[in-house]
């Protein structure tokens, strides 16, 4: 038993490492395909060609590609992602400031969509009939509504019409936990709308599949109360695909935070990608892509292990 689990974890860890490496190479190549050399970007439009060439030489831009990559990788594993071409600030430090913002957003949105989605999905599967159809229609609508549009609507409703929540901005947790929660509310809800709809669909389908299993009939034949069949046995059976769905959702929401951050002026990773792409800040783009991948892959790994732990077949074999 321990051997299988250990082997499984080792395999997954290697996969995760491979994923990050692939992305690192990909990001490196993409950044090199960006228009303009780092010298040109850094010095701006008015710089002389000589100054640009000199800076490029200094930054190692003319070294062979693989040398540049391994140099970057060597620094990166020590936590140094280089300096921004635009303002020279440390990219590692900048991202370390931004990560909590995006992490709060994505985690909050994932938790909220899991709670709402499971509640909606279970209700639809268990109640059936008209309520199932109403929830189905509602969820279908939510899936189709673009997150940014929903976000604007929320701003209109809760910040413009009634100023319950601040429309934009982010307050760090250390400054004021209460304001932190308030500043996260609208972006989290905005992101959670689509996520909840996705998880609701997954949950409904998984619950229905669970209820089609023959052991449900055995439970009924031994007079198991309905609530116990539904919320202990069927939900337990359905939990595997639901958790897998939540893991997928986290990936989507982590990326989706780009939009929420733009809309609500949150200083997170998404905003960093957007600005650094717009300004052709190559090392910043490279750094943020890799960091985002590391976070997503790590969270995914944890959730996947959780899924496997929920499955007696893998846990006990």
């Amino acid at each position: 038993m321990e051997v299988t689990m250990a082997l499984f974890i080792t395999k997954r860890l290697l996969m995760a490492l491979a994923t990050v490496l692939v992305v690192a190479v990909l990001a490196f190549l993409l950044v090199h395909a960006m228009p303009g050399s780092p010298g040109a970007v850094s010095l701006g439009a008015g710089a002389s060609q000589d100054a640009i060439d000199q800076l490029n030489q200094q930054l190692g831009w003319n070294d062979p590609l693989f040398a540049q990559f391994f140099h970057w990788l060597g620094e990166a594993v020590q936590g140094n992602l280089g300096a921004s071409l635009i303002d020279g600030r440390s990219i590692s430090a900048d991202l370390a400031d931004r990560l909590p913002v995006t992490a709060s957003l994505a985690a909050g949105a994932t938790v909220l969509s899991a709670v709402l989605g499971i509640a909606l999905g279970v209700t639809a599967a268990v109640r059936g009939g008209l309520l199932d159809q109403v929830i189905g229609g509602f969820v279908g609508l939510l899936v189709a509504l673009p997150a940014f549009w929903v976000g604007v609507l929320f701003v209109y409703l809760f910040a413009v019409q009634s100023s319950v929540f601040p429309a934009t901005g982010y307050v760090p947790f250390e400054v004021s936990p209460q304001d932190w929660a308030l500043s996260l509310a609208l972006p989290v809800i905005t992101l959670a709308v689509g996520g909840a709809a996705f998880i609701a669909r997954q949950t409904r389908a998984s619950m229905l599949e669970a209820l089609q299993q023959e052991h449900i009939r055995t439970l009924r034949a031994t007079a198991t109360p309905t609530w116990k069949i539904l919320y202990v046995h069927a939900l337990r059976y359905a939990s595997l695909p639901i958790v897998a769905g939540i893991a997928l959702q986290f990936i989507g929401l982590f990326g989706g935070s780009v939009i929420a951050e733009q809309l609500f002026a949150m200083p997170g990773l998404g905003q960093a990608v957007q600005t650094s792409v717009s300004t052709h800040d190559a090392p910043a783009v490279q750094g943020v892509v890799v960091i985002a991948t590391v976070v997503v892959v790590a969270v995914n790994l944890v959730l996947e292990l959780a899924t496997k732990f929920l499955d007696p077949k893998l846990r006990a074999s």
Partner: peptide, 8 residues
């Protein structure tokens, strides 16, 4: 599938 697609 485990990549942050939007960022990429």
């Amino acid at each position: 599938m485990s990549l942050p697609g939007t960022v990429i």
